[in-house]
Nucleic acid binder design. Structure first.
Lengths: 218, 218
DNA sequence: GATAAATTACTGACCGTTCAGTCATTATTT
DNA sequence: AAATAATGACTGAACGGTCAGTAATTTATC
């Protein structure tokens, strides 16, 4: 881990006031996601960010403040990007839904942001305010965007008249599952399906159904 | 919390060698699920089980051993019950699938067992062996059972020829989501749908699809 | 442009607290 | 009274947070 192929030379401390907060937040998100809040040592975060423990306290008041900041700064840009996709209303609803799902996967699932849902599941009991914030500012907005896509589909006569909010939650479950699942069972990689294949199949099932419709379909 | 409406009387210590392990395991599962492994104090578990800290060490070697035992003893009976449902092969495949989903929800989601998935998501990084065990002994078996139900549906010409294992994972996502979600955002209960309504809608969407099939359906 | 003075980002030894695990003692059962 | 279940004060290690000290950088002076 700390063994390089070159001899470890103690770098002189560089002063980079501007870059520190972002570096600390990124390091914090990684380590918190890996170990959880309580099991994370502040010194690990500091080391990963290339500074000493004391430096963390120049930029953040406490471990808890760093935790909250790491989650919030990570998610806010993501939700805005996700909403943008839903407004691209040219395509047929089914296609829009598909690109929404894949957009969400690319933006969250494949990046370090994917750590946030896992972290929230783990720590909601210890940080109910963070859970509430996330629910109101991120989940609600994402569901609304997705529900709008579905409502458009219904309006246009492409979809059955289902409850859009409920359907949105259902469409989200495969995304949520694959994001959390991959990070939880990363070691058991052998058994896990390719995320694209999984999500593609999930969208297809949700739109077309598993059942072979009778010839004289209603 | 520890304030009752009756005055707290110090009960004399009763000796109940037989009942202790199960009581400790149940208490441990609760507290671990609520706070996570690192943030849980052994004394909290002991208190909830109605004993003192020292007693825990009469029955378990360490905090870690208690953690592993709590997860394993909780899940083993559950997976066996779940497999039993899948073998009840009389009904049409779609109905079998529906009762499998609801059976899983009743057996896991509504009981203290629902804590286990959440706990695993939270702690897989710190306990990779437990994650691997869970993946092999629980998830794989559950997926196999569900895949068998789907394969039967395909054989009988009720379902399209989809990949059963992949479809099984997809069917599991709403169950996984609702179980983990409810426990994560229990406080934000206002926005959450009724689990039965959610799961019913999910199964319907997965079997029948969202899209209105053309009259001359293939 | 060189040197000194002032500033401040950064460090890491230290302190106080918390908690897993121990064990001498007490309480209960047989 | 022998056996053993249960207790809780105690110990040692780990870690969040502090702060006196160090050194990189900027500003002031000649």
């Amino acid at each position: 881990m700390s063994t390089h192929n070159t001899v470890e030379i103690k770098e002189p401390a560089r002063r980079r006031k501007e870059a520190r907060p972002a570096e600390l937040l990124a390091a914090a998100l990684d380590v918190f996601a890996e170990k959880g809040f309580a099991a994370t040592r502040l010194e690990d975060i500091a080391t990963r960010a290339g500074v000493s423990k004391g430096t963390v306290y120049l930029y953040f008041d406490s471990k808890e403040a760093l935790f909250k900041a790491a989650i919030e700064t990570a998610m806010i840009p993501a939700i805005e990007a996700a909403e943008a996709i839903a407004n691209d209303a040219g395509k047929p609803a089914a296609a829009l839904l598909r690109s929404f799902v894949f957009g969400w996967w690319e933006r969250i699932g494949t990046t370090s942001l994917g750590a946030v849902p896992k972290l929230l599941v783990a720590e909601s009991g210890n940080f109910p305010e963070v859970a509430r914030w996330f629910h109101e500012e991120i989940i609600s907005r994402a569901l609304r965007a997705m529900a709008r896509v579905i409502a458009i589909g219904i309006e246009r006569g492409e979809f059955r008249p289902i409850e859009p909010t409920l359907a949105a939650r259902i469409v989200f479950s495969p995304i949520f599952s694959i994001i959390v699942w991959r990070r939880t069972f990363a070691d058991c990689a052998a058994g896990l399906p390719d995320p694209h294949v999984f999500l593609d199949a999930a969208v297809t099932l949700l739109t077309d159904g598993m059942v072979i419709q009778a010839k004289e379909a209603k």
